[in-house]
């Protein structure tokens, strides 16, 4: 009963989402402002007129490395523990993931959103990874003993390439930032999950889906 309710709500939100994309598109194409929501028309933003194609400028990897390491240091100066530091990095990752999701769905999936767990995970492994890091993630695995848990494994993640972890903080994994990105993308796609970064086979991002996600998935499979 509960699961069925949540599925239909999910479907409705999908429809609403596509509808809102179309509205946004129309606004940007012809700038009509009659009867439109105020937020769409406010300040005739030039950003709405811009195409969503990949940016042409090529920022160097070094530039990113410098920025990221400075970010880590900034966070480090404001926390008392490794877990707090990772939480802060994950927070910033969430804001990246949330901004990235819509643009990728529109650009690479033509506005179509995934409804199945495996598809959304593949979307992350392939599309999201290519957009962020220029390559697919190394591996995607499911836990043997738990249908809620999946792993994205990256032998040498880009964000860790320039960070040497001090011995006294050996559990620190700055891929917590990437975990935040993945968590935001899953959650905003309607697959609420917790994602954490661990030192295992390089770096492993552990994805634990909410019970409701798996229950919904089983119901979809049953049809």
């Amino acid at each position: 009963m509960f699961a069925e309710g949540s599925v239909s709500i999910f479907m409705i939100s999908l429809i609403l989402y596509t509808a809102s994309c179309q509205v946004a598109n129309k606004v940007s194409l012809c700038s009509v402002d009659t009867n439109m929501d105020v937020s769409f028309t406010k300040g005739k933003s030039a950003i709405l007129e811009r195409p969503l194609s990949r940016p042409k400028t090529e920022v160097s990897l070094s530039a990113f490395a410098f920025l990221f390491s400075e970010m880590v240091q900034y966070c480090q100066n404001r926390v008392y523990s490794v877990s707090e530091l990772q939480a802060r990095l994950a927070d910033m990752g969430q804001s990246v993931g949330a901004s990235l999701l819509d643009v990728l769905v529109l650009r690479e999936k033509n506005g179509k959103r995934e409804t199945k767990v495996l598809n959304i995970l593949l979307f992350i492994k392939v599309n999201v990874w290519k957009a962020l890091f220029g390559k697919e993630a190394d591996k995607l695995e499911q836990a043997n003993d738990d249908d809620k848990t999946y792993y994205i494994i990256e032998k040498e993640p880009l964000v860790n390439a320039f960070i040497s972890v001090p011995k006294e903080n050996s559990t620190l994994n700055c891929a917590a930032f990437t975990a935040g990105i993945v968590e935001a993308i899953l959650t905003h796609s309607g697959f609420p999950a917790k994602v954490t970064a661990h030192w295992h086979k390089g770096t492993t991002l552990m994805i634990k889906f909410d019970e409701a996600v798996i229950a919904r998935e089983k119901q979809l499979d049953g049809r």
Binding site: V59, S60, A131, L132
Partner: peptide
Amino acid sequence: WGNSELFTL
């Protein structure tokens, strides 16, 4: 790498 999106975001 040559990608500016991750950097910008």
